[in-house]
Design a protein around this nucleic acid. Structure first.
Length: 435
DNA sequence: TCTGGGGTCCTAGGACCC
DNA sequence: TCTGGGGTCCTAGGACCC
């Protein structure tokens, strides 16, 4: 038996938490650069605001309807997420944090939960809400896909009061019959269209399909989904593993054509990606750089430039990676493009102690390479320590950084976050005050 | 004027091996 | 004139997730 605990309108409720004046009011949170609506409070959903809609299209609507709008404040959401997850970890021995706002709990080995699933689910819900202030819904089922379905039902149907247990066949069939197949975990927009064409519209209809037939048409992934809907568990609790690829990228608040500005952006992304890489004790073999103009422009054709390089000795050294990124950008740069976004990707990642040394490295006999890499590791470690200790300034710039990243204060293209809330829980200067 | 930023897995097809 | 059978590895692209 699995439970899925999912926070309701997570970002929107994080924003509401420290703003009692917004109780009962519509709140939306925007993506980076204040681009799209990515979270809506229940009141905002009732007003008909859609997920993913560009903000400029609904800005006027929000003003007219007294909707409070926030730029995304990831520092706040990540901290609140930790609080929710650590609360769950106190309540169940096996927790898989699946995303910033949801976690799977494995209940089969946990007798306390199994004796009365419904009351255990309600206990989870009320304790998380009491400890963190974040409302959640709980779904339970014999597989992860069923727990997802149960969670959807708990959110959708008020009669469940936020907790839904799918443990008897009649009830399971009923829920499946009234739920659209597009709501199933693993069925996206494309698959929904194709399933509809085959006459499959409800979850129930998918569940009674011959799994082999589903495999034939859609592949092994959806076949597993189909099996999971029949109670055959194909997905287990997964441990946290090191990332196999790392990306750092951002859109600019204004278009860029100047190579120096683009280079500063790319260098910052290289530095950020390198830092992420070190946090998981990894090194990488390949680094790629990309930049593109807006795919939405009606007057310009969509152009994307990219290039990559290989490190003979895999690395996580910021200086090496920033230099490589700069060099790639110089090779691929095209003039007269209004660049809207740039980024750096790292591939072929492995743990730093699993590195295969270079057979043809110069002076391998007297171990020059080792000495050098040890020195480089020392320098970077000092940099990381300083940055950890002194954190970032108000422009999100680290205490110690590579000069070619430029000074963020002076970069007019840095992403805009015009409606940013305070970091209530992580910055002592921004802690909420009670008058 | 203004449209996010991460990730994962699977498959098909080509290159290449013996 | 006729040209096998079995395998691996890599990459690009497509689907999905939040």
């Amino acid at each position: 038996m699995y439970a899925l605990v999912d926070c309701n309108s997570f970002y929107a409720n994080c924003e509401k938490l420290f703003r009692p004046d917004l109780r009962g009011k519509a709140v939306v949170v925007l993506s980076n650069n204040d681009g799209c609506v990515v979270a809506r409070s229940s009141e905002a959903k009732q007003l008909g605001l859609k997920m993913g809609v560009p903000y400029f299209q609904v800005k006027e609507f929000c003003e007219k309807n007294d909707v409070t709008v926030f730029s995304s404040n990831y520092t706040l959401y990540v901290d609140m997420s930790h609080r929710v997850m650590s609360t769950l970890e106190k309540l169940c021995p096996t927790v898989e944090v699946y995303s910033i706002d949801e976690a799977f709990l494995y209940l089969a080995d946990y007798p306390t939960a199994m004796t009365d699933l419904d009351s255990y689910g309600r206990k989870l819900k009320s304790i998380v809400e009491q400890y963190t202030g974040i409302p959640v819904c709980v779904g339970m089922g014999s597989t992860k896909t069923m727990a997802k379905l149960a969670n959807y039902a708990a959110k959708k149907h008020p009669a469940t009061k936020g907790v839904c247990v799918l443990d008897n066949l009649r009830w399971i069939r009923r829920i499946m019959q009234i739920t659209d197949v597009g709501e199933v975990w693993g069925v996206g927009r494309r698959y929904k269209v194709r399933l509809n064409k085959m006459g499959i519209h409800t979850v129930y209809q998918l569940s009674i399909c011959e799994p082999a037939k589903i495999r034939q048409h859609f592949g092994v992934v959806l076949e597993r989904t189909c099996l999971e809907l029949n109670g055959q568990s194909c997905l287990g609790i997964e441990a946290v593993e090191a990332k196999k690829q790392i990306i750092s990228s951002r859109s600019f608040s204004t278009r860029i054509s100047c190579p120096d500005e683009l280079s500063q952006a790319v260098c910052s992304h290289a530095a950020k990606a390198a830092s992420k890489l070190r946090k998981q004790d990894s090194v990488c073999h390949y680094l790629s750089v990309f930049a593109k103009n807006s795919p939405f422009s009606k007057t310009e054709s969509y152009i994307s430039i990219s290039g990559q390089c290989q490190f003979i000795t895999p690395t996580a050294d910021t200086r090496v990676m920033v230099a490589a990124a700069r060099q790639i950008l110089m090779q691929i740069f095209v003039e007269d493009i209004r660049y809207a976004k740039a980024g750096v990707m790292l591939f072929d990642i492995c743990q730093h102690d699993e590195v295969q040394p270079d057979l043809f490295a110069e002076d391998s006999n007297d171990n020059k390479q080792c000495t050098q890499s040890a020195k480089s590791a020392e320098v970077i470690a000092v940099m990381d320590q300083l940055n950890k200790r002194y954190g970032q300034n108000s422009n999100q710039q680290s205490a110690v950084f590579i000069a070619s990243e430029g000074i963020k204060d002076k970069q007019s293209w840095q992403m805009s976050r015009d409606m940013l809330s305070p970091c209530y829980t992580t910055n002592i200067n921004q802690i909420p005050k009670v008058d």
